[in-house]
Design a protein around this nucleic acid. Structure first.
Lengths: 235, 235
DNA sequence: GGTCGGTCTCAGCGCGCTCTCAGCATCCGG
DNA sequence: CCGGATGCTGAGAGCGCGCTGAGACCGACC
């Protein structure tokens, strides 16, 4: 059970951002998925944490008060370890900053969704660990390819929008588990989304419409609690 | 026996809320389940208690008279210990407060049920201690999975509503022990529930109807005292 | 500027769940 | 064997949750 955990087992992730609410959110989401985490707020602290904590991956804000994120990334790259880096950057970052992103193994622009971040961390670790198999999730007769963003049910391809795709991916990371609407909102939507939890209902409705044409219902409503990805036809 | 207790053994929990009736209720319920507890009413007192009491987990009201709950949570997080936090928040909290909740390891909105709170405390401790096994309770031929909210009796799945599920979970946390109707009401229902204790009878009846189709009776009535989860067929 | 696809809001409805109530069953002390 | 107290359960009222169709908004693209 909880297959996707395998890659995360024991992996240490250092999260660096001067905004505590961001490092907190990211670290919490990662820990929930089985990673070990540490958070620091500045560049100097990051260097120290790298030596002590020896992370397998670093999530690193480009703009730090005391030290440029790129400088840290470069040092990481030169080490024997070659610790991979995922950059955090504001959407409206200046041009010269954007170019530097190629130093990293991936980058995410704020505001992002926690589910997206977790997925990218997994991906980078999978890649840099040289695992050849692709990021393919499956549940029942559902198959989801994270790299190509393709989805099939019972061999039939399904077209999903971005939000639909990320919602389904979150469900497939947590098969059978009951997820509250709040939990879904916090993970799949951007962390600064302040809107109505009803969006979740709406998107579950969209997903069901697309998925259930090709087989028995897969997303169960647990009234007064949340939703769960389940195959009720084979119990 | 009392398997689920294992994780709680010796765990220290600090409960912080300016409302004494709340800290009392929560602390009592936790102590009943084998936790060591301490209660404080304000933010300053909380900081002091954290140093002295060194809790393994903190239940923390967001709105405190003297200090923001988030500030405390952040300080907890920076230590080497990384003490986990469960936030308490009013249902009608302003938006900006809600966003901050991702800082915690879990959160509960008032009014809550004590059984729910205890279950979440267990969950968070299990997670942060890096135990990957799932929250599965079992008694006799009954199996209850807290993550997926699935219930089986003798391999047969059983559909339960939210209240039925939480009542059964409370029984399974306290196997064989006699629970009074009052006790059940205080723990499974919201703490400010003012209604008829007859609801308990009603829901025990619902549970029995669903459980006893698949085997001998499991919920015993102890007249003039309460109920107990017992397997009378193998004494 | 116009079109289009996608996200999110809103409102109305259907119904599942909770809880109440009342009548019946069961227990137990006389 | 009776009668009162206690527990059980079927019926149903009411509420609020969840579903969904319609449409406003917004950004991307032409």
């Amino acid at each position: 059970m909880r297959d996707p955990q395998a890659v995360a087992e024991n992996a240490r992730v250092l999260v660096v951002d001067d905004e505590p609410s961001i490092t907190d959110a990211v670290a919490t989401a990662l820990r929930y998925e089985g990673f070990e985490t540490r958070e620091v707020a500045g560049g100097r602290a990051a260097e120290k944490a790298i030596d002590e904590f020896r992370p397998d991956l670093v999530v690193l804000d480009v703009m730090l008060p005391d030290l440029d994120g790129f400088a840290i990334a470069r040092r990481l790259r030169e080490g024997n370890h070659r610790t991979p880096v995922i950059f955090l950057t504001a959407k409206d970052a200046p041009e010269d900053k954007l170019e530097g992103l190629s130093i990293g193994d991936d980058y995410v622009t704020k505001p992002f969704s926690l589910a997206e971040m977790v997925a990218r961390v997994r991906n980078v670790l999978r890649r840099t660990r040289g695992e050849r198999e692709e990021g393919v999730l499956s549940f029942s007769d559902l198959v989801l390819n994270e790299d190509t963003r393709e989805v099939w049910r019972a061999e039939h391809p399904i077209e999903l929008t971005r939000t639909e795709f990320e919602l389904l991916r979150f469900f497939m990371f947590n098969p059978r588990r009951v997820l509250t609407k709040r939990q879904i909102l916090d993970n799949v939507w951007h962390y600064d989304f302040g809107g109505d939890p009803n969006v979740v209902e709406t998107y579950v409705s969209y997903l069901r419409k697309k998925l259930d044409r090709l087989g028995p219902p897969l997303i169960q409503t647990i009234r007064l609690v949340g939703y769960a990805l389940r195959d009720t036809s084979v119990e």
